[in-house]
Simulated assay, not measured.
Amino acid sequence: MSVETRVVEQKGLKAVDVAIVAVLLAVGAVLRYFTPPIAGITPNFVIIMYCLSILLIRPKFGAILGIGLVSAAICQVTTKSLFPYLNFVSEPVGAIVVGLLAMIRMESGFLKYVRPFLITLLGTLVSGFTYISIFKAITLFVQLGPNRPNPAYAALVVVVLVTAVANTVLGGILYFPLKAALGKK
């Protein structure tokens, strides 16, 4: 008599992983909605939370794309943007970059500690500059006068850079306590 062992490949996320993503994105939405602008800029807490979700659960590509799309939908409710639907491109692109960077092993020495900061920074920058690029393409033909650049572009770059710094600090600080609380190795 022989015993047959089967390996069942996991498809999708486990229920606990879905719960982690849902709670983090809900917290991000609430914080983004109720946080008043600081010097006219509101940090995008949804980006922080999808970065943390991806870093903590390390989902496969389809789930990463899903997290990005759900994040974009949440941003529709909480945004103050002129073109809110651009988030349906920028957030999935940011989430995919975070997912790809999360695959890179940096588990030794100093890199282990800067990894969540670095990945959150790059995810926020990619999301923000994707948004700006699409915004610029849409408004390319809007002219304010001869040889006058549109000041909205410079303002958006400032918003992305300030948001990236805020997200980096908050995401990096929150990563380790969340990782410990969830019992992730």
Score class of each variant (00 low, 15 high):
Met1Phe: 15
Met1Arg: 15
Thr5Arg: 15
Thr5His: 11
Val8Glu: 14
Glu9Gln: 15
Glu9Met: 13
Glu9Ile: 13
Leu13Glu: 06
Lys14Ser: 12
Val16Asp: 15
Val16Tyr: 05
Val16Arg: 14
Val18Tyr: 04
Val18Ala: 09
Val18Phe: 09
Ala19Val: 13
Ile20Gln: 01
Ile20Arg: 02
Val21Phe: 11
Val21Ala: 10
Ala22Leu: 05
Ala22Cys: 08
Leu24Ile: 09
Leu25Met: 11
Leu25Gln: 04
Gly28His: 01
Ala29Met: 15
Tyr33Val: 12
Tyr33Cys: 07
Tyr33Ile: 05
Pro36Ser: 14
Pro36Ala: 08
Ile38Asp: 13
Ala39Arg: 12
Thr42His: 08
Phe45Asp: 00
Phe45Met: 00
Leu56Lys: 05
Leu56Cys: 12
Ile57Gly: 02
Gly62Val: 07
Ala63Asn: 10
Val70Cys: 01
Ser71Asp: 03
Cys75Gln: 08
Cys75Trp: 00
Gln76Met: 13
Thr79Leu: 04
Lys80Thr: 15
Lys80Tyr: 04
Leu82Lys: 10
Leu82Gln: 08
Pro84Gly: 02
Pro84Leu: 03
Tyr85Trp: 14
Tyr85Glu: 13
Phe88His: 01
Pro92Ile: 09
Gly94Lys: 01
Ala95Gln: 05
Ile96Asn: 04
Val97Phe: 00
Val98Glu: 04
Leu100Trp: 10
Glu107Gly: 04
Leu111Asp: 06
Tyr113Ile: 06
Arg115Asn: 05
Ile119Trp: 06
Thr120His: 04
Leu121Trp: 13
Gly123Lys: 03
Leu125Ala: 09
Val126Lys: 00
Ser127Tyr: 03
Gly128Glu: 02
Thr130Glu: 00
Tyr131Cys: 00
Phe135Asn: 02
Phe141Met: 13
Phe141Gly: 06
Val142Pro: 02
Val142His: 07
Leu144Gln: 09
Gly145Asp: 08
Pro146Ala: 12
Arg148Trp: 11
Ala152Leu: 07
Tyr153His: 11
Ala155Ser: 12
Val160Asp: 07
Ala164Pro: 02
Ala164Cys: 06
Ala164Met: 00
Thr168Gln: 10
Thr168Tyr: 01
Gly172Met: 09
Leu174Phe: 11
Pro177Gly: 03
Ala180Pro: 00
Ala181Asp: 06
Gly183His: 04
